[in-house]
């Protein structure tokens, strides 16, 4: 018996799968695959803004009701991410208060405790590291920040022949960072603190370039904060966790100072070199220092930024 093959049916093969159709289909499939693959990195954007956040209004346009909703959303998001229910507040500047920071260069020993107390208080990213305070080690007899070294490692500080100068946001009266922001996501409040709305920032980093003190930091990646080190006492314009792609900087611990407390860097300083208070109150520590002490320059005074951060000496 010989098997009989069915006669080739030109018609069927031509309509169901011609060479041309196969190639067209394959090209379309290949193209779509390539498109999908090229979009694959988007899958890693897990903290893609929620529609609520995307549609949120500008901070200064939010009504108290809106703000309650926004705070509810932030609390939900933080709880989802870290498993801790935070206490988020929108603290407003107090009447008759203008903050000033004074730092005693005679006392500072360069131990960097302020740097890490700040990171701990303000929920900064631990990896990559974001730190608001840089401690410059400078040789005695010089005030040249170009000679400053902020990467020193020492088993024992202070080292002979050096003094230390911590630099952080100077809360300028004439802040260049605010002028360059194309979307008004950063502005100066009436108590002197320059704040950032992390939900309004577009991450252009103009402010980072404009700041003469290198005080602003950018979140190049999603910030990494260990759950056990998360500070649940948060403020909207302060230490609530940031997203990838936004700026941040020292805000004089808004969540503490606008509730009447001292900033975290001040409380941790083992030598009492840091002083903070209301310059409009003549009885405050900072008023006394400005009156009685040898207060030197505002740092980089020639820039015309007029900082609210002053350095002074004892002797």
């Amino acid at each position: 018996m010989t098997p009989t093959l069915p006669p080739p049916d030109d018609k069927t093969s031509d309509t169901s799968m011609s060479r041309r159709n196969f190639l067209r289909g394959a090209a379309a499939f290949g193209g779509l695959t390539a498109l999908a693959a090229s979009l694959a990195p988007l899958r890693q954007l897990e903290d893609f803004s929620s529609s609520e956040q995307f549609l949120q209004k500008y901070y200064k346009e939010l009504t108290p009701d809106d703000m309650t909703k926004v705070i509810g959303r932030i609390e939900r998001e933080v709880q989802k991410e870290y498993g801790i229910r935070p206490h988020v507040r929108d603290l407003k500047p107090m009447d008759g208060v203008e903050f000033v920071y004074c730092l005693n260069l005679t006392r500072c020993i360069g131990c960097r405790k302020c740097v890490h107390a700040c990171v701990n208080e303000n929920n900064q990213s631990r990896n990559p590291e974001i730190q608001y305070i840089r401690v410059l080690k400078m040789p005695h007899g010089s005030m040249d920040v170009e000679k400053g070294d902020h990467t020193y490692e020492a088993k024992s500080v202070p080292e002979k022949g050096f003094f230390y100068m911590p630099v952080q946001c100077q809360q300028c009266q004439n802040p260049p960072c605010v002028k360059v922001c194309p979307v008004n996501a950063t502005w100066q409040e009436k108590d002197g603190i320059t704040v950032i709305d992390y939900d309004w920032c577009i991450g252009c980093r103009y402010c980072e370039a404009a700041c003469p003190y290198w005080a602003r930091r950018f979140n190049f990646t999603k910030p990494e904060i260990p759950k056990e080190r998360l500070n649940p006492n948060m403020a909207y314009l302060g230490n609530r966790p940031r997203k990838q792609g936004v700026m941040e900087k020292c805000h004089f611990c808004i969540q503490r100072t606008r509730a009447g407390k001292y900033p975290a860097c001040l409380e941790v300083c083992p030598v009492g070199a840091r002083k903070f208070g209301n310059i409009l109150d003549p009885e405050s520590e900072v008023s006394y220092i400005m009156r009685e002490k040898r207060v030197f320059i505002q740092l980089k005074e020639e820039m015309g930024t007029s900082p609210r951060f002053f350095y002074y000496f004892d002797k």
Partner: peptide, 9 residues
């Protein structure tokens, strides 16, 4: 004198 906290990485 005391030990300084780690430098920025």
């Amino acid at each position: 004198t005391r030990e300084s906290a780690p430098a920025p990485h």
